[in-house]
Design a protein around this nucleic acid. Structure first.
Lengths: 299, 299
DNA sequence: TTGCGTTACGACTCTCGTAAGGATG
DNA sequence: CATCCTTACGAGAGTCGTAACGCAA
């Protein structure tokens, strides 16, 4: 057994069990990959992959179990380098952040800017994607840290840090009838609604609130980001339900904003990262900057 | 970085940072070890060991942190082989049990015998030692499983399975005055006592009980095993305090046994193993056999 | 025929062992 | 002067790349 074989297994999984692609990613020819895999399976005494003829189709039961250990070794290997780099105060690495539109736009600009001032030689990669994908980015080491509101609970391999709490608001053109009188889900439900796509920015909370109230939502537009929603609210398509952070005092003064915290449960935005990940100094700094930023974003 | 370098680090720690001995254990010449260590430190960019001249004295702060990851890799490496062996239903391995005299003599004979019947081709190593050492055996992979009563709590790297509960008894020559009337710590304290060495078989519970009662123990003999204690009780040195399991109806009928469960808190014997250890089928079997044996040992 | 994997073989890289040398107490 | 580690260099084991082949869609 050696680390290249371990890495090969990992990459094979990432390339859908395609040896040729795996070999390419490891900068070796395909035959070398084939041989190393054979040697490893021989050493263990049982095949790790299901095969149809020669083609690899997936993992065997044994392979599944082995992969957990492979992942553990890979994590430790990365940590060793991260620890050493951190110890040498190496500031030439890069920070990979995975997040959604809302957080990228309203929460992270401050922390990112301060991070760049403190660590000018480090590059920052932001990966914008859906909450489902965020978690995958963490697991596949494509991101160090994820910031989002949905989906990150109940994963025992992750550390979840609650970051801040916010509520939804309704936005509508000025002098909209909703602005008068008490705002209820019943009244909201009488209008066409514009809000986030499934799985985005507290959408699950919105759904649950309407479901429990026995009201059906008439969703005219579902978008991944608040700007799209606001744009179409301006065009008169209906009433928008967005995160309170997404209402900008200056730019959005042409829209009426109405608090919904009394009818839709407040959402919590969290920071997530792998439990076994070593946190370098710069990453701790960034996390702290987000936590420091959070109160300002609170409503 | 490669697995041999990782293994070298691990062995260096076990050999008190002596390259020559580490090299010998790895079946390479010393110069090879020296070079591999240099290469690895070079790769990381900082030394992992404190040096005085050329001699290694210990780990640097960086080294300490790296060692945690090394240990993690080592565990995963072992697990990979264990999983594969288990999957192939390989029954030619060996089972390393670390335990104390009392458990080895009164709890384990049954489970061990049944294990040997079920897995006749597996060899069994029993390592008898003090509770302090037991935990070290687990951490250093010299034992798969430890069974004992003391010291195993509060180690977050271990899984602790409570196994059974028992109490201490006092043993004395027949017609001893203690056998008459109510048995209290006050009365016990008036006799010379014979019991277990520090850290053995619930000794800490005995101490705590006397301390809380404000009584001082006059310990004539402290031994690691019950047989020594019983032997000297027979010679009239004083009153023995031993585990109830250690009183054998047949052999010990010449001694008076007096229950102490009302004055000394009951002890719990536990099974301990490393949290990240893969449990092969045979090890699960052995653990279950111990748990099944436990009720019979209960008093 | 193209894509994917295996087998055979010579070339090369990398690690090892031998041997000699420096430092420390 | 004994122990411990480092350095230099040639030998050898192991891995790689090239190339040819087998198999399936």
């Amino acid at each position: 057994m050696n680390l290249n074989q371990i890495e090969l297994l990992r990459i094979l999984q990432e390339t859908n069990f395609n040896q040729s692609k795996a070999a390419e990613r490891l900068n070796v020819v395909q035959s070398a990959a084939s041989r190393q895999l054979q040697l490893f399976e021989e050493e263990l005494g049982s095949p790790l992959f299901e095969r149809h003829g020669k083609k690899l189709l997936g993992l065997t039961a044994l392979g599944e179990r082995i992969m957990e250990q492979v992942e553990s070794i890979n994590q430790a290997k990365k940590n060793i380098h991260a620890i050493a780099d951190d110890f040498r105060d190496n500031r030439n690495g890069c920070l990979h952040i995975a997040t959604t539109h809302t957080q990228a736009k309203y929460l992270l600009p401050g922390p990112v800017q301060r991070f760049r001032e403190r660590y000018p030689d480090m590059s920052i990669y932001m990966i914008q994607s859906s909450p489902d994908e965020l978690i995958q980015h963490l697991h596949h080491h494509r991101a160090d840290i994820a910031i989002c509101t949905e989906k990150v609970d109940e994963d025992e391999k992750l550390v979840i840090k609650p970051c801040y709490e916010w509520s939804h608001i309704a936005v509508a053109p000025p002098r909209h009838p909703l602005a008068q009188g008490e705002l209820t889900l019943q009244r909201l439900a009488t209008y066409p609604l514009l809000t986030y796509s499934q799985g985005f920015t507290g959408r699950s909370n919105i759904e649950r609130a309407f479901r429990q109230a026995g009201e059906k939502m008439d969703i005219t537009l579902a978008a991944a980001d608040s700007d799209i929603i606001k744009t179409y609210v301006r065009l008169g398509l209906g009433v928008g339900i967005i995160s309170s952070m997404a209402y900008e005092e200056g730019n959005d003064s042409d829209l009426a904003a109405m608090d919904l915290s009394h009818v839709i449960p407040r959402s919590v935005t969290k920071i997530a990262y792998l439990k076994h990940l070593y946190l370098p100094t710069y990453l701790k700094y960034f996390i702290n900057e987000i936590l420091a930023q959070a109160p300002r974003a609170r409503t």
